[in-house]
């Protein structure tokens, strides 16, 4: 027995324009929940923060319009500039080694094989751990009698006050966040590497190119878009980093780890200067946007395959 399905012709039901209208209406209806969500939880708070940044609002009474006062205040605020400097250092120090290490691990792990599959799963474990739990684990590692001092003791270095020395504390946070995010970057880069066309590599090998040359001239250029994605999320993540500094050092010692989001939080919820905190948030946002645009400009144009 043969089952025949007859599809109705366009002319038999509605006109082309009518159908497009019906599809548009259905599409709009389907998109409505997401649009409402976006409006309520993104657009409205964002617009509110922009407006607050031009006001004096102390979590009581009505915000008073102050124009550009909050932005002017930023220029002369030593706390803001210290935090901006710490954030810049933290971003560079955590993003560069994270990506370099992730790439170094991803290249061998992207090759097929059961062992590599297991290793890829293992490397993801830190990324899957909650950041608060990770911070607690690392506070134990960096304690006086912790693993960090035990390890450096093996090579004859005396114990270090990792979290209470103003020259070490930021690097302690960098080590922790690198460990935490490495797995995610490895997986993304591994996926990118596995998607590259094998023919190009075979041709290069036939032409006598060595592994270093292949990596520099073929792998990296083809991986540009994946690298761009990893770089953008790494930079934004580092610039927004709050939890490690909040839990491990509270911004100390002597402001050495007071990253901008922590300063913003203290300004908003410690000093109750919501208007000023919003201005700091806007500056942070603009800085992140500018950096993302630069990254897009530099790395855009590659093709992963």
């Amino acid at each position: 027995m043969t089952l025949t399905v007859r599809l109705p012709g366009p002319a038999a039901t509605v006109s082309g324009r009518g159908q497009r209208w019906a599809e548009a209406r259905a599409g709009s209806l389907l998109a409505l929940p997401a649009a409402v969500y976006f409006l309520v939880f993104w657009v409205v708070p964002f617009a509110g923060a922009v407006w607050l940044s031009f006001t004096d609002y102390e979590l009581a009474g009505v915000p008073a319009w102050t124009g550009l006062d909050n932005y002017r205040r930023l220029l002369g605020d030593p706390g803001f500039w210290n935090s901006a400097r710490v954030t810049a250092l933290y971003t560079v120090a955590s993003v560069v080694p994270s990506i370099v290490l992730a790439l170094a691990i991803a290249v061998p792990l992207s090759r097929p094989g059961r062992v590599n599959g297991v290793l890829r799963a293992l490397v993801m474990i830190p990324a899957a751990m909650p950041l608060v739990a990770t911070s607690m684990v690392w506070s134990a590692i960096f304690a006086d009698e912790g693993l960090a001092n035990t390890l450096i003791g093996l090579v004859g270095i005396g114990p270090r006050p990792w979290l209470t020395d103003e020259r070490l504390a930021l690097w302690a946070l960098v080590i922790m966040t690198t460990w935490k995010h490495l797995g995610l970057f490895v997986i993304i880069l591994t996926a990118g590497l596995q998607g590259l066309p094998s023919g190009v590599f075979e041709a290069a090998a036939i032409d006598g190119a060595g592994p270093v040359r292949i990596f520099a001239r073929i792998t990296l250029p083809l991986l540009r878009r994946t690298l761009l994605f990893v770089l953008v999320i790494a930079v934004i993540g580092a610039m927004q980093s709050f939890v490690p500094a909040f839990l491990l050092t509270k911004g100390g010692p002597a402001g050495a780890t007071e990253v901008l989001p922590l300063y913003l939080w203290a300004t908003g919820f410690g000093f109750e200067r919501m208007g000023y905190a919003s201005a700091i948030a806007m500056v942070l946002l603009v800085a992140m946007l500018a950096l993302s645009l630069v990254q897009f400009g530099v790395l855009r144009g590659g093709d992963d395959g």
């Binding site: 304690a143 006086d144 006050p161 990792w162 979290l163 209470t164 020395d165 010692p253 002597a254």
Partner: peptide, 8 residues
């Protein structure tokens, strides 16, 4: 001048 700030 007193104490050791780096003691944790």
């Amino acid at each position: 001048s007193v104490g050791n700030a780096k003691l944790s």
